[in-house]
Amino acid sequence: MTEISAELLLHAYSQGIFPMAEQADAEEIYWVDPQMRGIFPLDRFHVPAKLAKKIRKSPFEIRIDTAFPQVIRACAETIPGSERENTWINDHIICLYEDLFAMGYCHSVECWQQGTLVGGLYGVSIGGAFCGESMFHRVSDASKVALVYLVARLRYGGYSLLDTQFITPHLARFGAIEIPRQEYRKRLNEALNRAGDFYSLPLEVSPDTILQLVSQMS
């Protein structure tokens, strides 16, 4: 089996392929190329009114890329008896994405409260495509708020594709849809020819501006 490096992983993403492990202690990593792919159309993202109201109250301090290792490890945590009873993130995957982070291709959006990391997400950024990998929360709605801030950042930064890999009822509530593999690759190729800027949105931007950037509420 070919040893997976950060460079090989980056190439795989450019072809629409991503890695997973069966579980945390699995040694093997396998490649995934779904027939149907989950994405968020960035111009049709939905923010439920209740969540928008919470965002306006600024319950979290939003940080970018300040605790990537903590975020990916929190995403890999399992909770017995819950939907997070298992994880596809093993130690090798963690190391690979930390390498991509060091190379500037991975990012984290983090929610903090009183100096404690309470939620967030991470993903891979290539050109104008952002491939969302995983999210977590330790306080209610923290991961949802991180997602809204991510979408605002991507829209402001000129991205055209937010890949969610698979669809869940939770993601569908925010406007995620499924598209065939061929259509995904077409959108991916278009996005790779763009120059998305993940850092162009200032950190000090107001919650109202974030919601205006996301634009659609229901």
Rank of each mutant, 00 (worst) to 15 (best):
F68H: 08
L100Q: 08
F68W: 07
Q35N: 07
V124S: 14
R84H: 11
S143M: 05
Q113R: 14
T78V: 04
K54A: 12
M36K: 14
E110I: 15
C111L: 10
H137M: 12
R153F: 13
R73A: 10
I79E: 02
V71D: 08
R44V: 00
P48A: 14
Q113S: 14
H137F: 11
G123H: 08
K50V: 15
C111K: 13
V71R: 12
L162F: 14
V151G: 03
A74M: 02
F45W: 04
R138K: 11
A49G: 05
A152F: 09
R44H: 07
L147S: 08
V151K: 03
W88L: 06
S140H: 13
A52Q: 12
F40N: 05
V139L: 15
I94R: 05
I39F: 00
Y122M: 07
D33W: 04
T66N: 02
F136M: 04
E61Y: 05
G127Q: 05
I39M: 05
I39E: 03
V47E: 13
L150E: 06
L100H: 05
I89Y: 02
G81I: 00
S140V: 15
E98R: 15
L100N: 01
Y159T: 05
W88V: 10
R155D: 09
L42S: 01
S140P: 02
F136R: 11
L161D: 03
E110T: 15
A102N: 12
A52D: 03
A67M: 01
L96Y: 11
P34H: 00
G127E: 04
C111Q: 13
S160W: 02
G115R: 06
A74S: 07
V109E: 10
D141A: 06
D65F: 13
F101H: 15
S134F: 04
A142I: 12
P59Q: 09
G115Y: 08
C106V: 09
D65G: 13
G115A: 02
G104R: 06
H137P: 01
Y159R: 01
R138H: 06
Y97G: 10
D99M: 13
R153S: 15
H137S: 08
N90V: 01
T116G: 08
Q70T: 15
A142Y: 04
V139K: 15
P34K: 00
D43V: 06
D65T: 11
G128V: 02
Y156Q: 14
H107Y: 10
D163S: 09
K54N: 09
C106A: 15
Y122Q: 04
V32N: 04
Q35A: 06
V148P: 02
N86E: 10
I79H: 05
W112K: 06
Y30A: 00
H137K: 11
E85C: 00
Y156M: 12
C111G: 13
L117Y: 09
N90P: 10
